[in-house]
Design a protein around this nucleic acid. Structure first.
Lengths: 338, 338
DNA sequence: CCTCCTTGTGGAATCGATTACATGGAATTG
DNA sequence: CAATTCCATGTAATCGATTCCACAAGGAGG
């Protein structure tokens, strides 16, 4: 693989001149520039990004650590992050934490070792030593979707969506359809989104004069299996709920599984709704009512904030709004009854 | 961020000694080693991977270029590749080509610029100049799932799954359930998997005395929308098929959509099956019969082959077998009739 | 006691780029 | 026409590691 000195030799100039041509520095005579460009083309030369990074102390690379690649919400997020970054000539390295704090730390560590310019994290868990270290070391850092608190982390912008409005709309929808005993499959209490969604749900219910009974809060871990388990517990209750809200898409799928395994139908046996909309919800039976996050906007905003930080500009937290997508899993949509 | 010379200063030794400790070279006195290690811990020093890569000419990084991150098959593949690589102390940088040759080339180029040690590709399209260049430059390279032909590419190992057996089983299953007019939603002819699946399907049908009519071959592009379009065309035929086989999961979803939009039911109105099994197929109505690839094994085998190449050992192509997962979308499973 | 080998360590070259500074020639100006 | 400025280019330092080579000290063997 040719290096800059090979190009220099072939063009009959010094490496400095080649470098100047490559970074289009103004003071290079046109004919020299052309000679260099010709040599570059002849040799198929491509600058070594490793060497360049060492010298300039920037990699034009962003790290993205997500909690679960297999969750369509996160792969959509990753995709939009990559799109946004590419437009600004940055690359993205994705690390999948698989909801495991140790893996999350592993990825943050290797990303830091690679001297990425900035870090985008959707943290799995509260206590991450490497992330604190990264923040303290002054690495530009932005949280997406979830965030954690900690010393030195209060300056980190958070790009997230506020589900309160949509959750309120969902509760209104459930009420309108006559559901009264509603339950929630919550996410891990260690995650902000886990806690928030329960809170929002509880207060929305209160507004409608309903109560969220302790028995009707199930602890899940954002994975399908936990949705199944929690739903089983709900359905075994002497007074089972008539509507279940899952705090993420995977747990909703698990819930659906369990409901169907018991020969119940959605929504007649029990209504179901989920946080995080995904393409597959259209195709399930029945299509699932869900709260959709503006994933694309989230990714773009996160990249913009991070690059602002990277390039020395201040960045601010952004909160977008989720919206309710009504389908048939809670009962017939309003307009469609005779 | 501390560099090796800071550690050296603090430990009162030269950088050479620090480097030796870090790479545990044997000839370092125990007490020196401890002094250095203490300095490393005190400063929270981490070696700069960029500098190390420049010097050693290896990045311990693999590139993975896939055709569509939003397709669960590929995200599962990416996940297993990352798992396998991590076990061998390699990182993975994923590039999403989005089924676009230009994006694929972009990713191959930036990965090469970063001097990754090896390249894993599931190519989108036949004519990729950068991939040919990479192969010619001697970059270790392995194809997964799909592959392309070309000068210099015949030495590239291919890690794939052979669907013939499973497709034969699927055809047998369809026949047993009384389907006779079967159709296929094919993938792009430019991809090997696109062509292969049609061929295998056609010859399996022939074995059972059935013919694959020209009208019953629809051209898709591995995206949901194309599945919908092709299915619409099938159902508008004077003699519409009574079973549809989609060459990938996304197109199957599109097909399901169209079928349902017309008020038809699966499998009574028309049977449906897909290549590539995904978790969601369990949850659709009805659950979809699919051909499952051993994705985890595929990823592991691909990484193993690539690292063999990287470390100078020879590597061979591997072909695994897919298997049929019978669910209810083609009719009641055999044993369940009274 | 001298030579030879081993062991532990430091000095300096090196990887491939970028960039401050030096330099020589042409152009501009008084 | 001499002095000054500017333009195009080259020389060399630098980034942070690894590693070859040199060298000093200490032990073994004759």
């Amino acid at each position: 693989m040719p290096a800059i000195k090979d190009v220099a030799r072939r063009a009959g100039v010094s490496v400095a001149t080649v470098s100047r041509v490559l970074n289009d520095h103004p003071s290079v005579r046109t004919d020299t520039r052309e000679r260099v460009l010709a040599a570059v083309a002849d040799l198929g030369y491509r600058p070594n990004a490793v060497a360049r990074s060492l010298r300039t102390d920037q990699t034009r690379t962003l790290g993205l650590v997500i909690s679960d690649v297999l969750n369509p919400f996160f792969t959509e997020l990753a995709r939009s992050v990559e799109d946004a970054a590419r437009e600004l000539d940055y690359s993205v390295i994705i690390g999948n934490a698989d909801e495991r704090p140790d893996l999350q730390d592993h990825h943050v560590r290797t990303l830091m070792d690679r001297r990425i310019d900035g870090l985008l994290v959707s943290p799995t868990d509260g206590g991450s030593p490497m992330m604190l270290a990264a923040a303290r070391a002054g690495t530009p850092m932005v949280f997406v979707d979830r965030w954690i608190e900690g010393e030195g982390l209060d300056r980190v912008p958070v790009i997230r969506t506020d589900g309160r409005g949509a959750i309120r709309a969902l509760v209104a929808h459930l009420c309108a359809l006559g559901h009264r005993r509603v339950a929630i499959i919550a996410g891990p209490a260690a995650t902000t989104t886990g806690r928030e969604r329960v809170d929002a749900f509880r207060s929305a219910l209160a507004e409608f004069g309903l109560e969220l009974h302790e028995d009707h809060i199930g602890q899940g871990d954002f994975q399908a299996d936990s949705g199944r388990r929690v739903t089983a517990r709900f359905l075994d209750l002497p007074h089972p709920p008539d509507a279940i809200f899952a705090a993420d898409n995977l747990m909703a799928l698990g819930a659906m599984d369990e409901i169907r395994a018991r020969g119940l139908r959605v929504p007649d046996g029990v209504a179901l709704a989920a946080f995080d909309d995904i393409p597959w919800f259209v195709h399930t039976d029945p299509p699932i009512t869900a709260i959709a996050q503006p994933t694309g906007a989230l990714g773009h905003a996160a990249v913009r904030a991070l690059i602002d930080l990277v390039e020395g500009r201040p960045a601010e937290s952004v909160t977008l709004s989720a919206r309710l997508v009504t389908r048939r899993s809670c009962g017939e949509p309003e307009g469609s009854k005779p």
